[in-house]
Each structure stands twice: as C-alpha cells, then as structure tokens.
Amino acid sequence: MKILHIIPSVASVRGGPSQAVVETVKALRNLGIDTEIVTTNDNGNDLFDVPLGKPIDYKQVPVRFFSRFSPKVNFIREFAFSSQLTTWLWQNAARYDLLHIHAIFSYASTVAMAIARIQGIPYIVRPLGQLCEWSLQQSACKKQIYLNLIERANINHSQALHLTSEQEQQEVSRLALRSPSFVLPHGLSIPSTISNARSLFREHLKVPADEPIILFLSRLHPKKGLDYLIPALGKLTNYRFTFVIAGNGSKEYEAEIESLLISNRISDRTCLTGFVTGETKNLFMQGSDLFALTSYSENFGVAVLEALAMGIPVIVTPGVALATVVQQNKLGYVPELDVQAIAKAIEQYLTHTPEAKDMGDRARKIISENYTWDQVAVKMEQIYESIIQFFPINS
C-alpha cells in the first residue's frame, strides 16, 4: 500500500494541522506503510530553506517540498500556488494507491483533488475545520464562490471526508455534500515528564514559586476568542495569577491583543512569549496550572489534547470540538463564549485547586488510552485498505 499525503504547508507556525500530518505519516510508516508528504516550502511569511523537488528527511518522515509563489500581497501568498507542485503531481500521483489531501480553499489541495479526479485516483480529504460554520462565515462571499465553483465538486468526488470530531461531522452534514465521512481524531506523542517543571517555569517567568499560571498556547488569530478571555481575566482583580500568551500572529492582531491587555488592566500580569516549540513548549505546558482556549470554533484543538496529556485542567468553550470530552469526563470547565461565564469558570478553578488535581489525573489516563498516534495509525490503515479495496468497483 502506497499513500501520498498532500498539504499546503508543514510549517510549525501553521499550527496543529500541519504538525498532525507529520505525526500521522510517522506513525503509519512505523506500521510498515509506504507513505510520504508533498507540500510547498511555505513557512508563514517566510520560506523553508530546503532542497526542492526531492524527498528529504523532515522530522523523521520523507517530505518533498516545492516552491511556493511568494508575492507581497498576503492573500495571494497564503493561497500557496506552486507550478512545480502541479507538474510533479500530474506526473507522479498515479504511482500511489490513494491520496490523503489535507485542507481546502488552498491551491495545493485543490489541484491535488482535481488531478486525482482527472486521473481516476482515489482520494480522501481532511478539511481542517474549513467546512465548519464559523470558518465559512469568514470571507464568506469568496468562500461560497470558491466552494460552489470548484471545491464542492472536488469534495463530492472524494471517497471520504476525514473529520476529526463528531462536532465537525455535524456541521459538515448541513452542507449536503455527497461524499461520506468518517471521524478519526488527532493523536498525540506524549513527551517525557519534566520533574521540576513548575519551579523551572516560574523561574523562567520570574514569578513567585506559588504563583498560579494560566496558559494560552496557540496561534494568535481572532477565532481563538482572546477578545473574551482577556476581559474575563480582567474581572478577577481579587485573585493572584500570571497569564501567559504563547503564540504569534499578524503584527496588526498582536498590537490589538496588547491594547486589549492594557484596556483590561492585566498587561502587568501577562507574559507575551511569542511562538514556542520543543522543550520550551513542553515546559510551558507542564509548568502551567490551567490551559485556556476560548475559541469561537475549533474542529479539534490539538493544544487542548496536549495540555490534558500533561494532566493540566482546561477551560474551553463549546466551539472547541474537544469540549464534549472535557465536559463528559470532568477534565476542566466548559463555559459559554461569554465574558462573565468564562470569568466565573476561572474563578471556580482558582478557588478549588484540589478538584483540579483529580481532573488532571483523569485527563492523563483518558488521553493515554485513547489518543496516541499509534492507535490513530492502526485505524487509519484499516480505512485506507477499505477504500482501496472497493475503489475499482465504485469508480
């Protein structure tokens, strides 16, 4: 079985979905499946300095990078156009038994679906939450035109939609697409425990050893709900805490966040650390007391999963797909997307610390038993085999 994964970018700055495809391929290869990634050299506003057009070892998996068109106009650059990628896919896609295409509304994904349709190659699509209601409402006119003229036909001809939560599946079902769907969540590579993470993190931030730390770790984007979380924290004037924002975004939005911190009078209680990865990210996760993601919409929420795996209680809003898991298993708090409700949930955490330890213990157990990449890869292999087996009959 030979599988090709296509995604516009594998850059860490693109967040969880890009990291997930790398981990998926790594786990599939551990099962003996011949699979690799094709992508552009996109690295946010920059480009990866990597050899182009040939497989290289990237984070222990084979990846072929192709040149991304990089004009100064942001929305054109973000579209990730690549003529080299197009040529290579046209000449080589048929060598694979199945294409696993990640993202929509982006050139690399769209052209991969079109080529698969023309050449009669089976493919599945992971839309990365871009078919969810909130996402479709952003730049709604452009997306509706793109969806109706191009992407709907591409999706309808896919063998399946790969969705990562039941919540995403419910939202996608409202679009009346013809392609069937299956739900397979992201997995997690659980890092080794840092024994003195709490003290090390507080030393790093230069805050008292007993200071409660509330962590937001994600890219800075309007959908992440910081416009609710920051005002909620601003209401907790009678409580000690340090708020950590670990992530980056556009310069304009970063400036907006800084203004929001000042207007809510918590700038002196907030550490803006920028984007963190590797051991620094692990330290942030393991050294925090509460992880917060009050998003408008998340088709999954990889960072939430990472926090739970470390035994950190979370506060998430209903738009985060993992909210159901959090609520059903009492792994944290799920307030409505409302300033008062979020403030009340954080206050509840700050006044019920022993309860939080029980949440953390449950979270570690549930994540280790249900969300490892090895478990995901086994299920993915079964799905691939089923699609490949029946494709000649259905095509």
Rank of each mutant, 00 (worst) to 15 (best):
I101K: 14
I101A: 05
I101V: 14
H102S: 12
H102N: 14
H102I: 06
H102M: 11
A103N: 12
A103C: 09
A103M: 05
A103E: 10
I104N: 04
I104E: 06
F105P: 00
Y107T: 04
Y107N: 09
Y107K: 02
Y107L: 02
Y107E: 01
A108C: 05
A108K: 04
A108P: 13
A108L: 02
S109H: 11
S109M: 13
T110F: 09
T110P: 07
T110G: 10
V111I: 08
A112G: 07
M113E: 07
M113D: 03
A114R: 14
A114N: 08
I115H: 08
I115Y: 13
A116T: 02
A116M: 01
R117V: 07
I121P: 02
I121K: 06
P122K: 00
P122Y: 01
Y123P: 04
I124N: 08
I124S: 04
V125M: 01
V125K: 06
V125T: 05
R126F: 15
R126N: 15
R126C: 15
L128C: 12
G129K: 00
Q130M: 08
L131S: 01
L131R: 07
C132L: 02
C132V: 00
E133N: 06
E133Y: 01
E133I: 07
W134E: 06
W134N: 05
L136T: 00
L136Q: 07
Q137Y: 03
Q137F: 06
Q138T: 08
S139M: 10
S139Y: 13
S139E: 08
A140R: 09
A140K: 05
A140M: 04
C141T: 14
K142F: 06
K142L: 11
K142Y: 08
K142S: 02
K143R: 14
K143Y: 09
K143A: 12
Q144K: 15
Q144G: 07
I145G: 05
I145Q: 09
Y146S: 12
L147A: 12
L147T: 12
L147C: 15
N148F: 14
N148L: 15
L149Q: 14
L149G: 09
E151D: 14
E151K: 09
E151S: 12
R152V: 08
A153G: 07
A153T: 10
N154Q: 10
I155V: 13
I155G: 07
I155N: 10
